[in-house]
Amino acid sequence: MNTAPKTIRTIDALAGVFTVSLGAAALTEAIRMPRFAERGVDPYTTPGVTPGMIAIALIIFGFLLTIRALRGGSTGAGVTIHVWTRDAVLRIGLTLTIALTYGGFLFGNVPFIPATIAFVFAFTMALELVNADRKVSVPVLLGGAVLLALAAGFGIDFIFREVFLVRLPG
């Protein structure tokens, strides 16, 4: 067994505890599901049977992951959450804030075209401004972002309404 760095072990242990908790919660719910005995339903076809089996498997797998992490063993392959640089945190913070504002709030509450224009403009501007390798000046960036946002807002609206016959909000 490979010995993993402490940060990866902690991440794996937390993931294991989460999996056990999820499995336990699902098992509790599965047990609470109705058995429809009054309707004469076969006890093996009751709704909780399969979720219960899946929940037990999750509890076992989560327990094994937790034990492995606590014992210090893990391949650690693919775990990247502990190697975020300051730039990466800034980029992902901005991306999540702008994207979630658009997808979680603006879309559906504000007419589609203005919401999308605002989102694409904000996304492009914000992430280019924090980009250390930016090659264009701020005025050029501003003009380009406005053009892109207008093209995206009106273009996507046209394609979805006229070609794919989807009614967009607003």
Binding site: T95, A99, L100, Y102, G103, G104, F107, G108, T116, F119, V120, F123, T124, L127, E128, N131, G144, L148, A152, I156, F160, F164, V166, R167, L168, P169
Partner: peptide, 30 residues
């Protein structure tokens, strides 16, 4: 990527909505 991914995210949101015209599908996608 800074110029492309905003448009791609918009397509993800609209694509999820287009399935059944429900905001729930957009929330589920996010």
């Amino acid at each position: 990527r800074e110029w492309l991914l905003g448009v791609i995210f918009t397509l993800c949101v609209v694509g999820a909505f287009a399935i059944s015209s429900r905001i729930f599908e957009v929330q589920l996608m996010i």
